[in-house]
Design a protein around this nucleic acid. Structure first.
Lengths: 142, 142
DNA sequence: CGGCATCCGGTGCGATACTG
DNA sequence: CAGTATCGCACCGGATGCCG
């Protein structure tokens, strides 16, 4: 056993935690998402992740590899070439990743709509109801 | 805007990251999962999370509240009572959470099967093929 | 090209103690 | 019961530089 999912373990059943643990890390989620389209080389992957450094990306990839979610293939060529692709297990994550993406899309769209609505309200005070539904919950008057 | 999803932002579209960011935190995932069954009081929730401290649980709940995923209701009673329930937005996460759980279940079952298989192999070397499929990818001969 | 070594700062997380 | 206050630490993520 390489490592328990976390320090605790919640007994033998914390499936959500087990899953989240595997995709825990600032970039793992996006990495898996991009790999859904097929295998990618290191720098190709890196280009899709603005802001990530090699050290970090390498680490995330290693962890994903150790989790058995991706496969790392090294081609012994003069210009080194390393490709990353989803393993069978990683491929089985596809619906999960897509669920995350779908929800995120809706979430971001909703947010954008709210922002625009409030902007419109600012342009036309006492205008049409900006409350198109139960969107924003609180202005957090902390 | 309370805070950008992360320091970068990936342009206007990193739905997976946006989603993962909201359930990022050691306990948020499980909290949401347990709230799927209905609202829970603070200590009830706490009892379901072996190992969590008040300070941390409080923080996670606050962040979930600020994200608009859960609703915090305080009843001004002599023994203070605070209940947490999913908001509409949090409720919309249900399929996502369930997807995480479903995958985690399969993952854990697979792991358990592999462990047992290797244990059986240890008991009976050269026995029946323990390789019931493409399960373990590597013994990590690092 | 794709890594690893080293150093460093922010903060997430935890233990403990106290309050309304 | 539910929460703040204080303290401490490990660890993740990032910057820089060198190697096969």
């Amino acid at each position: 056993m390489p490592k328990p999912f976390r320090t605790y373990d919640c007994g033998p059943g914390c499936p959500v935690e087990a899953t989240l643990d595997l995709i825990d890390g600032k970039w793992k989620g996006v990495v898996l998402y991009h790999l859904l389209d097929g295998c990618l080389r290191f720098n190709a992957l890196r280009r899709k992740l603005p802001g990530v450094t090699q050290r970090v990306l390498t680490r995330q990839l290693r962890e994903l590899e150790e989790s058995g979610l991706i496969v790392r293939t090294v081609y012994a060529e003069v210009p080194p070439r390393v490709e990353y692709r989803l393993s069978a297990r990683g491929e089985s994550l596809r619906p999960v990743i897509l669920a995350l993406k779908a929800w995120g899309d809706a979430y971001l769209a909703e947010r954008a709509a709210v922002s625009e609505a409030s902007a419109a309200a600012a342009r036309a005070p006492s205008g049409p109801s900006t409350d198109t539904g139960p969107l924003v919950s609180e202005p957090a008057p902390r």
